[in-house]
Computed example of a mutant assay.
Amino acid sequence: MSNEPGGATAAQPDPPETVDPSPAGATDTGRPTPAPGTLPLALLAAGWLAAMLWSTREAISSATAGVTAVSLSAFALPGVISAALVAGAAVGLAASEPVSRRGDRTTLRFAVAVGTGLLVGLLAALAIDLSYAGDTTTRTIAGTTAAAAVIGGALAGARNGAVVGAVAYAALVTLLFVVAFSVVRDPLFDLFGAGDSQQSLVNAASWVSRTESLLAGLIAGALAFGYLTWARRRAARSGTGAELRWPAYLVAGAGPGLLLLLTEVIIRVGGRSLIDLAAALSEADAVAQTSLGTSRVDNAIWVLFVGALTAMVTFGRTLASPPADDEVPEPDEAGADEASTGTAGR
């Protein structure tokens, strides 16, 4: 009776194997996953900030009148602020990552990241003061740029450096893409039916902006996923770093859009005087500044949601499929032999 099927000591089928829905090779050591490639990222971000400062100086210097210089400064401010924000985050991450590798030193890591962001901001502000005309416009650009770099450094002080690295890397490439996209704007205007009427120009501009935002979001999400996958595989080979779950991919994909929104907040707070001064030049300038501000916010929201969706969908395709609930596991051969022997002996 002891070996009868259904008895207390009857052979039981082996329990089904548990399928881990996380990507293969993930580790879980309790420590955050290190961010790879922080030094090249910091150099690229600092170089991009220097390029934006130089191009802004050239544009302002080429202006023939002070009124034109104010208008050009207002137009160039978003590019400088976004570059300073990414540079502060990238350089701060490169400086703070070695601190976290020696142990869980969250406070020291944050202090180093903020201090590095402050140093980047001060150097950028000094370069602006020395190379730009010394007036109210220059001081506004310098102060806002320094503040953006400090905020970027504070973001780099977050505990999960891999996510910060993914956001900074994707944001930097997104900014480069926006500049490169200007080459195809005119052909796209013609493609979307821009004509002689004002309404056709507005409609074409709207479609061009949506196309740019959609492509930027796809690029941001794909690059964020790629960076986190790289970080996870390096951590798996070295046996360091905690397993990266889906929230990390969600935040990394949405991060470039969030940085663009944060850029707009910094502009409207720190650069308000410059924007108001440019808008007061004429009615056309006022309309242009309002339109550009709305367009930047719309672009940031598109990049945020498309980037987050792209990163999540790409991450979801790497997960292993769980077993079906209605599958009943077959007993192993030993269990089957014992059950048949018990039945024959009865």
Rank of each mutant, 00 (worst) to 15 (best):
P21C: 07
F75P: 00
E58F: 07
L49G: 04
E58C: 00
P21A: 08
A63T: 15
G37D: 04
T56H: 04
D20V: 00
A63D: 00
P78T: 08
L43R: 11
A65N: 13
A76W: 03
V91D: 02
G30F: 07
P32M: 06
A84P: 01
L39Q: 03
T29K: 07
V19C: 00
V67A: 15
S22H: 05
L72Y: 10
A35L: 07
P16M: 13
R57T: 03
A65T: 15
E58N: 09
A65M: 09
A35P: 00
D20P: 01
A11Q: 05
R31H: 13
A94S: 14
A65C: 07
F75W: 07
L41H: 10
R31K: 14
L53S: 06
A51V: 14
A90I: 09
A51R: 09
T27C: 02
R31Y: 15
A63C: 15
A76F: 03
T27Q: 12
A76Y: 07
T33R: 12
A74C: 12
P21F: 05
M52R: 13
A83D: 02
A89V: 08
I81A: 06
S55E: 10
L72R: 08
G25A: 04
E58G: 03
L53Q: 09
A74P: 06
A76P: 04
G92A: 11
A94T: 04
S62M: 10
